[in-house]
């Protein structure tokens, strides 16, 4: 499928290396407008004041964890329909269930491959297009 490559994306992870890896893979897919944040507390104001169309977030972060960021986005009337992909090292069943209940569109366990990230993004946007 053809992805909406003009979508503005926010990548949130407390490790700089992971932020840059995700950004580079997104570039490789064809996305051009990518911003970065190092935890939920810095990401939320960016989301509220920006015109982002897609959020990719880690779980374990200082100040505000990814799961709380997801809940905050889903509770915000303007942001609540934003697609969210969680990319995290947390792989326990109950955590995945918790993330799903909080409202993530999909979930990737680190380490991941570029193909996995691309497939998940395609799945998310395909699902949105079908609605």
């Amino acid at each position: 499928m053809s992805l909406p490559l003009e979508t503005k994306i926010l990548v949130v992870d407390d490790f700089e290396s992971m932020r840059r890896i995700v950004k580079q893979v997104l570039h490789d897919i064809g996305f051009k407008d990518i911003s970065l944040a190092d935890d939920g507390a810095t990401a939320l104001p960016l989301l509220k004041n920006g015109d982002f169309g897609f959020l990719i977030t880690d779980w374990n972060m200082p100040q505000m964890e990814g799961i709380d960021l997801v809940k905050a986005v889903r509770a915000d009337p303007r942001l609540k329909s934003m697609p969210i992909l969680m990319v995290t090292a947390e792989a326990k069943r109950e955590q995945i269930i918790q993330a799903a209940q909080a409202g993530v569109n999909d979930y990737i366990v680190k380490p991941f491959t570029p193909d996995t990230l691309k497939a998940k993004i395609e799945k998310i946007f395909k699902g949105l297009a079908g609605k």
């Binding site: 490790f15 290396s17 890896i21 580079q24 893979v25 380490p111 491959t113």
Partner: peptide, 11 residues
């Protein structure tokens, strides 16, 4: 790209 992905070890 493989070198890039391998840097994920640091996280």
């Amino acid at each position: 790209m493989e070198i890039l992905m391998a840097q994920g070890f640091q996280d």
